[in-house]
Write a protein that binds this DNA or RNA. Structure first.
Lengths: 110, 110
DNA sequence: GATTCATATCCATAAATCTTGATATATCGA
DNA sequence: TCGATATATCAAGATTTATGGATATGAATC
């Protein structure tokens, strides 16, 4: 993950509809959702959603796969992983206690 | 952390200068840096940097503290913690294996 | 209190972004 | 092949955002 890639990802998430899409897909898990389902769930017009999905795709935050007439979108956990790693790079240099709370944030029930 | 707060933070980080500032401050650790030092380090004009620091401040990603004539800025790890938690909310619902790579991303040497 | 230093605010312009109607592409079923 | 369905692309208008010059504020020093 380089600076430009991270910027694409952060800018992609810094917009309401796209952040909602990403969170929806994170919750949807490995099954993801069809493009149409996403648009309907968030009450956004088809072409607007398509444009927003394209932004998330370019940013590496979601993947997609055609299934007949529909297209399934899935959160790309590898993409978000790279982003978080980039954000916290060198966080521990000299101050271990500084970033501990951040690590705890993701301590879910996995 | 609610949606609007998360949007502020992500939009703040989705801009080159501000992302560089945040990473610089993460690396600087608990000591942080003076506003002028930051501007000089990143080769950005004083008033532009001041505006960008104000955005990061409003987004809860940095804190500041006046020290005589200068003002020290420090990364707000609690702010970034809340943001990451919001992004990954409910990530494990039914698919523990899905988010494990994300957790591993932050496994630094703390 | 005048001057200097560090930072913030105001304002105008330029650039980027979002949304949307219209339309194109791709797939399926008849 | 034709029509229907699902999604993507195009182009334009509206809104937002970033930058930088000028200036204001706040704090130290003399």
């Amino acid at each position: 993950m380089d600076m430009n890639h991270a910027l694409d990802a952060l800018a992609a998430l810094g917009q309401k509809t796209r952040l909602e899409v990403f969170r929806l897909l994170v919750k949807a898990g490995t099954d993801g959702m069809h493009a149409g389902e996403i648009a309907e769930a968030l009450n956004v017009r088809q072409n607007t959603m398509s444009a927003n999905l394209a932004v998330l795709l370019r940013a590496g935050l979601v993947r997609n796969e055609r299934e007949g007439r529909t297209i399934r979108y899935v959160a790309d956990m590898e993409g978000i992983r790279g982003l978080l790693a980039f954000l916290m790079e060198d966080c521990c240099g000299g101050n271990p206690q500084m970033c501990q709370p951040v690590l705890d944030a993701l301590a879910c029930e996995c």
